[in-house]
Write a protein that binds this DNA or RNA. Structure first.
Lengths: 84, 84
DNA sequence: TATATATTTAGACAAATATCTAAATATTAT
DNA sequence: ATAATATTTAGATATTTGTCTAAATATATA
């Protein structure tokens, strides 16, 4: 839970998730959406990976990232415990 | 949304919310649950306040904190956009 | 094999964060 | 009024975080 909330606590990482919600993208395609260096985006992707919020697959010289919505379910359940 | 995720990105603050889920508590009662100084807890309460995740009411020399679940609804909606 | 492209790793640095102690403010009780 | 209790504010400090550039790794192409 800690890793998930940590991962979600950054606007760039939340935007990456929004992008991957639409379709799978390579690291470079993701980086192209931001005014941030590629190494920084790579670091954000690493934090999202650690939280298991995204998965990746190597495709030649590219690495394709996908969103993993099953983890969102955990957050959802946590939030729901507060609904009265 | 930024303030909410920031507020949720700390285990102490999430535990404070769990406590307030059960019942309203004074700042001192909240602090008593943790091995952390009262000023630090006060700071955590301030961050939760800024995110509008808690409300408070003065009662004599005490300040009673309550959870505000309406904000949880915003997080819920955000999460739900990822459910496919 | 040499070069270009895609991505990550390493190391540095400034800004943000969680914590502390000491002091200030507010209320209650003697 | 004075002392005690509840809470916050102020200021300091160590750790974490987001960012950068430079270098390393891996794959594809000429």
């Amino acid at each position: 839970m800690n890793a998930i909330f940590k991962a979600l606590n950054d606007v760039t990482r939340r935007e990456i998730l929004e992008l991957l919600k639409v379709k799978d993208l390579s690291a470079g395609e993701i980086a192209a959406h931001f005014n941030i260096s590629k190494p920084s985006i790579s670091h954000h992707l690493d934090i999202l990976k650690r939280a298991d919020l995204i998965t990746f697959e190597k495709n030649g010289q590219f690495i394709i990232y996908s969103i993993n919505t099953t983890v969102m379910e955990d957050v959802l359940q946590w939030i729901l415990t507060f609904k009265k």
